[in-house]
Design a protein around this nucleic acid. Structure first.
Lengths: 198, 198
DNA sequence: CCCCTTGTTGCACAACTGTATAATCTTGTC
DNA sequence: GACAAGATTATACAGTTGTGCAACAAGGGG
């Protein structure tokens, strides 16, 4: 006479279920508000299952960062590809995509903020951050070069552009009512034109 | 026969001791790594004392944000005052001070990042953030106006400048090796000159 | 139907959390 | 010295945390 709940196996998608639930928890509660129990409840599984698919909750958070980071990179790449062959259009598309869905959504930006908050205290997140940001920087530098910028300038330009994008993400995430993604995109476009005049 | 530790009373500075210890903990461990025990150990007092001076740990974190926020505002004001009467010099000093001690230190920027990470999940921090950032924006807008910017433009300029400063703070905090405060200050000065040409 | 593999549940456990509070120590006043 | 106020210590407590794991249920194959 068992009172244990029935279930349907879905091993193919459990890890992703947990990653998605983790991203939602990070967005809603910040890094400090995630726990094995809240994530697993959201994913519709028992708390012990997390350990079957991940080493522990820290491993899950890292996997979530890797996943969201890849999704952002994919969205940026898709925007560049859709812009066609013109180097300047591709560059503008890269920057502009940061302020469009699927990137500029409250959920993703809030999740991103949670990852930032973990960089100083979690070595695995710090390593991921380094790799992910290096990837974005390499891509941005290549686009800047293709658009005609002198090689000596692309380093600082990439830093400056990345800083403004991150800052705008931060403000969009924290102060959703003060201004919107359209305005952010216009500000970023203006900054881009400073570094690469017509 | 008591084994209880001896102590010296210092009620005048206990609250501040706790605030300083809280700031250090936030900088070192992020928001998720602070606890009553770690803060009080750092402050050299017993864990129960926190509740004597603050409603609870959340109240202490909020008091720490108020304190650090006021320290930043004071540093910005001091830089403006030291710049003399010229409106453009005062504006430049305001922006530049963001990249000088006592603001652009690893500890303060890391503490700041921790506060950002709490805005979405802690209503008291959110309210403080709103007030603190409104204060900075009002001050910046006034300086922009004094420097000759059209009233219709100061809103967006303040947002744009704040976003870049925050973004640079974030990068300085997370990637201390990639570039430094001098470079950040130069980038910010360039952005300022975009919004207020000579 | 039976058997086996494995995905999953539910919970035990040690450790940690914030809060509350009794007891005690310090120190200023008389 | 005696006493009182209050600063402080140390710890109890209920609740939560991540991890580990026994037990069981699902489902595929024979």
């Amino acid at each position: 006479m068992s009172l244990r709940a029935t279930y349907v196996r879905a091993p193919d998608r459990r890890a992703q279920d947990l990653i998605d639930a983790c991203a939602r928890a990070l967005a809603r509660h910040g890094a400090g508000g995630v726990s094995v129990r809240t994530i697993c409840a959201d994913a519709g599984v028992s708390p012990g299952l997390l350990r079957h698919y991940f080493e522990g909750i820290d491993d899950l958070v890292a996997a979530t960062y890797a996943h969201v980071g890849a999704a952002v990179a994919d969205a940026l790449d898709a925007a560049v590809a859709a812009a066609g062959p013109d180097p300047r259009a591709r560059l503008a598309a890269y920057v502009n995509a940061s302020f469009r869905p699927p990137i500029a959504t409250q959920d993703l930006l809030s999740t991103w903020l949670a990852f930032w908050s973990l960089v100083k205290s979690d070595p695995a997140i710090a390593a991921l951050h380094r790799d992910i940001y290096a990837g974005y920087r390499v891509a941005l530098e290549a686009l800047l070069l293709d658009a005609g910028m002198a090689a000596a300038d692309v380093g600082q330009a990439a830093i400056a552009i990345t800083a403004l994008v991150d800052g705008l993400w931060l403000e969009l995430s924290l102060d959703a009512g003060v201004f919107g993604a359209e305005e952010a995109a216009a500000i970023a476009a203006r900054w881009l034109s400073v570094w690469l005049p017509e």
